[in-house]
Design a protein around this nucleic acid. Sequence first.
DNA 1: GGCCCTTTGAAGCTG
DNA 2: CAGCTTCAAAGGGCC
Length: 146
Amino acid sequence: MSWMSYWLSCHQWPWNPSQFQITLDQSVSLLSLSTTLCSLFVFCSFRKRKREEGKGPYVKKPPNAFMLFLKSERKTVQEELGIRNSAAINKVLSERVQNKRELFQAEAQIEADIHALNNPGWSNKANYVSLLCRNVYPSTLEVMTS
DNA sequence: GGCCCTTTGAAGCTG
DNA sequence: CAGCTTCAAAGGGCC
């Protein structure tokens, strides 16, 4: 049973139009549910929207040391082993990063500093879309079970 | 077309 | 404060 059918069964939804009588509490619950679902849709759409280029001032996270290492060594592994799949390449590079970690950590720190200068006040919080969604779910469940 | 996989690490949130 | 979650990159694979 889906959460929607569960909610409807709990609230004895009047499928027959002639029986369309709901209490004030039920209408308030329905309004809250609608509002909450709209919020859920809007917030969860951010994740998809932010990946679209040229829409909004989305600022990406600065790359960490391993990400810089991946960018640097990806083509080498592709040519060396003839692998195109990034998941497989990443596995190989995770083994090779050991002796170059400190070098790329220093570079990552520079990247982070430049990112901070170019984007004053920016925080990872701006990219944490699902936390917003997570705040919506409990209230949705609260409406469903009230 | 869009999500998943796969990795490390930074940063934020939760209990 | 420990533990969990997300997202940075990338491109093949899959639905």
